[in-house]
């Protein structure tokens, strides 16, 4: 019996495809998320929009809160640790969360080094803005990626940028001749063997989901259309006027993203979405996507 192999870690990411992973801050929200059809929940103390508003240092959640959510639902429970904070990650692993998000939404603990993730039994998901960042995280052991977008803004523009960047960089790699790949690996700052793999297969070696700024069913469908294999929704659900209705609608839209007629029905009468932030109004230093490298 080989426990927690890399295929077993990536396998759980495969099982989350086509679904919605929802940020929740307590057991009641976790139950609402499960009843709406979430494939997993992300347990955290404050959703990104709240973290933005409150300021200060955002850290991993209280184990009591994570345990209460694990007891409340049967779907996988994920939790976030700070970038580079391998002790927070060990604590989350001891709690047997199903996935750890080494996340830019929390305040980074290390500005130079991300966590070495192969040595953990629990799988990791990490954020990325481009192919180099994606392959560095996979090199460190991430079993799933998510484009960063800009969390807590309710604005999909950065998420779209990251998905499109990733897609066009992958397409470009498939056009290169073998002797060009080492230079490309150097330019991307990515492991050569992973660059070769992507060039040969035209996709990432692990699933890639979208995160950051998804606030409507149409946003979720847009991410799927741009190549995301599932979506994370943070502030977009529980800061909306009717979170139950919106949660269900985003689940439905992620499955039926190719069917515009269904999307029109799904998008009807949801009440007000979360208040958003226009990017030019956001101070450069307040951009979470810039955290990590």
């Amino acid at each position: 019996m080989d426990v927690s192999t890399f295929p077993a870690k990536v396998g759980l990411a495969e099982m989350l495809k086509g679904g919605v992973i929802m940020d929740v801050v307590n057991a009641e929200q976790a139950r609402i998320a499960q009843e709406a059809g979430a494939t997993a929940v992300m347990a955290l103390e404050r959703v990104p929009a709240q973290i933005r508003k409150d300021g200060g240092v955002a850290r991993a959640s209280d184990p009591a809160m994570i345990k209460s959510i694990q007891e409340a639902v049967s779907i996988p429970v994920m939790a976030k640790c700070r970038i580079g904070h391998f002790i927070e990650a060990r604590i989350l692993e001891a709690l047997e969360v199903d996935f750890i998000d080494e996340s830019e939404v929390l305040t980074p603990a290390d500005e130079d080094f991300h966590i070495e993730k192969h040595s953990f039994k629990v799988p990791f998901v990490c954020g990325c803005r481009d192919l180099g960042e994606a392959l560095r995280r996979i090199g460190e052991g991430a079993a799933m990626l998510r484009t960063k977008g800009e969390a807590g803004t309710g604005n999909i523009v950065e998420g779209v940028r990251h998905l499109r960047t990733l897609r066009s960089q992958i397409r470009r790699l498939t056009q290169l001749s073998p002797e060009e790949l080492m230079t490309e690996a150097k330019n991307l700052g990515a492991p050569y063997d992973l660059v070769k793999w992507v060039a040969a297969n035209g996709k990432l070696p692990v699933p890639n989901f979208a995160a950051g700024g998804i606030a409507t069913p149409a946003d979720a469908a847009l991410c799927m259309a741009l190549g995301a294999e599932a979506v994370f929704v943070g502030s977009g659900i529980f800061l909306a006027e009717d979170s139950r209705k919106r949660a269900k609608a985003i689940v439905d839209a992620t499955t039926y993203w190719q069917d515009a007629k269904k999307l029109a029905e799904i998008s009807t009468g949801l009440g007000a979405g979360m208040p958003g932030i226009e990017m030019s109004k956001l101070n450069e230093n307040d951009r979470m996507a810039k955290r990590g490298w």
Partner: peptide, 9 residues
């Protein structure tokens, strides 16, 4: 069990 107990054989 939870994900950390997932396995191959």
């Amino acid at each position: 069990g939870r994900q950390v107990h997932s396995f191959e054989d």
